[in-house]
Structure formats: C-alpha cells, structure tokens
Write a protein that binds this DNA or RNA. Sequence first.
RNA 1: GCUGAUGUAGCUCAGUCGGUAGAGCACCUCAUUGGUAAUGAGGAGGUAGGCAGUUCGAAUCUGCUCAUCAGCUCCA
Length: 633
Amino acid sequence: MNITFPDGSVRVYEDGQSALDIAAGISQRLAKSTLICELDGESADAFRPLQGDHALKLLTWEDDGGRWGYRHTASHMLAQAVKRLFPGTVLAIGPAIENGFYYDFDRADPFSPDDFAAIEAEMERISKEDLPLERFEMPREEAIAYMRENNEPYKVELIQDLPEDSVISFYKQGDFVDLCAGPHVKSTGVVKNVKLMSLAGAYWRGSEKNKMLQRIYGTAFEKKADLDEYLFRMEEAKKRDHRRLGRELDLFDIHDEGPGFPFFYPKGMTVRNKLEDFWRQQHEIRDYQEIKTPIILNRDLWLQSGHWDHYKNNMYFTVIDEMDYAVKPMNCPGAILTYTRKNYSYRDLPERLAELGLVHRHELSGALHGLMRVRCFTQDDAHLFITPDQVLDELCGVIEKCKYFYSTFGFKYRVELSTRPENSMGTEEQWEMATDALRKALERSEISFKINEGDGAFYGPKIDFHLEDAIGRSWQCGTIQLDFQMPERFDLAYVGADNEKHRPVMIHTTALGSIERFIAILTEHYAGAFPAWVAPVQVVVMTITDRVNGDAKAIFEKLRAVGMRAELDMRNEKIGFKIREAQVQKIPYMLVIGDKEVEGGVVAVRSRKEGDIGAMSLDAFMEKLQKEVQEKI
RNA sequence: GCUGAUGUAGCUCAGUCGGUAGAGCACCUCAUUGGUAAUGAGGAGGUAGGCAGUUCGAAUCUGCUCAUCAGCUCCA
C-alpha cells in the first residue's frame, strides 16, 4: 500500500501495517509519542491495521487531535474505574474537552469528591494493567440489543438516534466496553498523570427537561510536569479572580442582601469613572450623542417593543398609581422614544444615540457570577438610526469602535455571528438581508468569525465579541445587532430627498457590553494592577520620619492640585511596611520622602513594577506620570 | 431554576467523641522616628447565615430557608 506523508512523500508498506508500525519504522521515539493518527484527513486509531493507499499524519501530544485522543481514552478509563468501584452505575457520555475530559453518570447515590482518591487509584491501576483498546462494530439493531442487555439505556437512546443503516462502533478495554466513534490510544498504559477536578450536575443531552446526571471532570497530561504546571496555573488564576481582587483592593463587592446587585466602593468607582470618561471621549470622536432614558417605563411601551412577549420572565415589574410599569431590561425603547420626539430628515442620519443605560434582568440564581453575571448592570449602549444604504458603512464603524476599545486594553477576543432564533419577529427575507449585511461588514473589517446558528436576538441577527476571564471562561461583551423590527413596530420614519416617508434601520450595539462585566474582565486581565490611567490610586507619598511631614504634605498637595490621584501615608510605620502595603494594593508609584530627599529637593520614586527607580525632581515625576496617563500604558 | 458542596470576628481560616468559640491579618492604644514588601507590646471585636427541632446541653445532629461556590440550563 502507498502511504502519503504530510510533506508529500510517498512510501510503500505491506498491507496490514498500522500507523504505529509505520511510525516505528521511522523511529522508536516517534512510535512512542504517536497517540492517534489522521487518515485521509479523518482522525483514526493509530493501532489498527491499514489496507490500501492512504494519506497519513501521525498525531502526538503536540497536536490537538493527539491530546484529544489521549484524554478521550482517559474518560473511558474513568468510566471503567467507576463501573468497577460502583457496579450498577449507568453510563451516559464522556468526551474529551478543552484542557481535559468528563464523563456523565447516572447513579442513585451521588458521588462525592471524597470518592475521587479511590477512583483515581483505580484509574491508575487500569493504566498499569495496560489493557489494549480494541474496536469492533455491529449493525444498529444488534448494537441496540447489545446495549439493552448491558443495561445502558442512554447508550440505547444514542444509537437509536443514528440512521437506520449505520454501523455502530464500540471500544473495548479489558472488562469495559463503550459505545464510541473513537479514536483512542493503543492501550490504557499510555494514559498517565490523571487528575479528577470536580463534580457537577449536568442535564442528559444538555436539556433541562431531562434528568440531571452526575458529571465528573478530570484532566490528563502526557507528562507529570505538565499536569503539575497546569494545576499550578489554575491556582494562580484563582488569585486573579475579580471577586477576590474586588474585596482585597476594596473596589466592589456583592452583599447577601442584594444577590446579583453589585456595590461599587470609592476605588472601584474611580476605575469605573475613568472607563466611562474614556467611553465618552471615544463616542464624541465618532459623532455619537449621549442620552439618558428612564429606568421605569409603562407596560404599553414594552408590549409595543415585543419585550413583554419575548422577555417578561426576565423582567422586573412595579405598579405606580395602579398602572403596570416595567424596569427596563434593555435601553432600546428609550432610544426609540428619543428618536420619535421630532421629524427626521435623511440629512440628519445617521443619528447615533449613545447611553450608559442601567438595565435590570432577572437572571436565574444559579447563573449569577460576581460582576460577570449580575441582575442589574450598565450597558454602554448605542442605537444608530440609519438609512438602508448606510448599513454597511455604519456596521463597519461600530466594528472599528469595538476593536479600538479592546486593543486599548490588549484583549484577545473571539467573534461570533448569531443567526435567526426560533420564536423571532420578522420575515425570512429581512433576516437574510440583515445577516448578510453583518457578514459583509465582518469580511470588510477583516475579522474572522464563527457562525452561531439560531442564537440571534428576537428582533435581529447579531455579531458578538467574546472576551476571556482569568481561568479561560469566555464572556460576551460587545455586540452589534441589526434590526428591521423595532423601526417597524414603532413606526419610525425619516423624510427622504423625495419628500416621502421612509423607514430607518436600527443598529443596537455595545462595545464594553456591561460596564460591570468589563470591569471584572479588566480586573482579572491586569490581576488588579491597573495601568495608571485607570488606577484608583496612582501614587502614594510616604514619609520615613515625621520630620518631613510638612514637605510630604506639600508634595501631596501639588500632586492633587494637578488632578493626580495621590494618597499621603504619614503613619508612624517603617518605610518597608508602607511600601509593602502600597505594593499589595498595586499602586503604580510610591514617592519615598526622608531627610535626604528634603535636603536634595527631590522625590525618591519607586515603581510598582520596577522597584526603586531613583530620585528625581517632583516636576520630572509628574511629567512621567502625566505621560503614562495620556498614553494609557 | 437544577445537581453537588460550603456558610465560624471586617478578611483568610482552625476547632478531636455534641459540654455555651480560637489564630493570623485588619482595627484601637502605647512605645519606637525606622531608608525600598510586615518594629514590638497591649487591647477591643463573634451568641457561629436565618428559623424551627432533637437533647440536660448544639457551631458540632435533623428539617426548612437564605446566600455563596463549581458545573448544567439560560444569558450582556
């Protein structure tokens, strides 16, 4: 048989050789590191004998596919261990995932983290037993009967969902058999360095209508050192958690008295205000007008907007003078009412209305998560009212705006284009037009994106920008939605050059998303060490002896006079103590003032990042800080 | 909302078999005036998330409830 390698070279092998045999023919080391392979572009077992001509790529731990195969085998070993230790446990599914694997089980008695040690030990035993993985296939009906016999109803259900004529594959390792498409590594002895991470509930097939199963998450690495490093990194990442930093740095918190309703303390408020200043400046540059619309508006408005029908389970309501009102979950109706205040000419468009709008949404209690997921938050919202032929340019404009914000902070992000959901308003044609416009705008802006079918808003398709938090969970921040529905519902119009009434198009967009969420991500991104332009305190003036209190106070006042966020530490403490405290608080600069400095007419500057950077005149320091603030570094 | 876990001073945590709570940091007082990540000594501070129950007696056991954490579902 002819085997074509990734570099294009072709070599001839005898039929019946496996990818592992071929690897061994190249080098023992390659054979040892080969986990699975890619056969004619499809991932496949490396241990199975090959027949006929193929394109072959050997996959090792360095390849995504290799890691996937390794961890998928680990998930089977987890299931095997659980079956041995807890007979009667019913299996659901167990895939490899980013950074690990999981397996879902159905068992009357819940697992506890205390069981992990025993399960891990059993998995290690299975690894030591070095059981070869074997693949076998049977016709669908036979497979269903086989799994019925084994009392695996979830597996039966999975097979029943496959096409009538399909051939079903299984993998066997010792006493354990699982329905599986594969591929797997050659034997359980390959998989080492397994760690069970956590236990959680998960609905069968991801639907809350189904039974909740018990999911065990784990991870596995080829090298022990890599596992240790991963575990260490996870621990380090936890130190960056914004909920922890919010308390430690006295920025913000959430009290039991208001689940999902965050408090911003003075220092957190500074970060927030600086961010909002930046937001205002950037919107002014881009020709937006700022508005502020009410938090509570009457029932009729929400009926007209469609929110009442589509969103009422997530809304808060109140009664005023025996009339129903709703607390706004979105700002659009407010912006729309603003638009209706006058007659617009085509010459007035685009009309870009921006609003830092406080919205309230009743999120499920289990969904709340620090500042990332709250029940009241401020959207940096903008609504653009435009003519149909302005759509593409304006979409590109808002994309540019989002990109500008993220690049200012050095965020990496992922972009998704979400299409028409079920239960949405409007015609198929409108949706197609809108979705197409968004796609064109992304392409013109040279942004790569993923399609997210059926995940759009009820009034239109959307582009979402997702940012990652400290431990790799991703959160939607910016969004751009193209909307033909609201203008229709509210009978919005502008007068065209032809003196006729025309329907404007709306773009709903946020760049930061929610100020609260953005601050959470910002806090984790910088691990609390905010750059000087947003830092709650930029500089602390600290004294070594109270002989210099007067001079220190004068320096402090000069800093304050030019608007620098300075603090004065004249406490009766050693300088090391004061420095430590300022470092822990991650304050960008410390000015150490003692007899020497007073004599020399200088300040001794310590940078949070670089330590002692020497003495300089106060003016020189102020210039340095000023520059940092302006350049946002 | 669902599954599991957790809930002790402002914060981080300890507390063996149920016998009415302890540390470090922070806070206050005093001494110390010290040169780039913690000076020393002393003091104050909690009825153990809440409500019921079992018990002679509960932070420790049981039930309910609230909140938090992890994940699922949902979502900016």
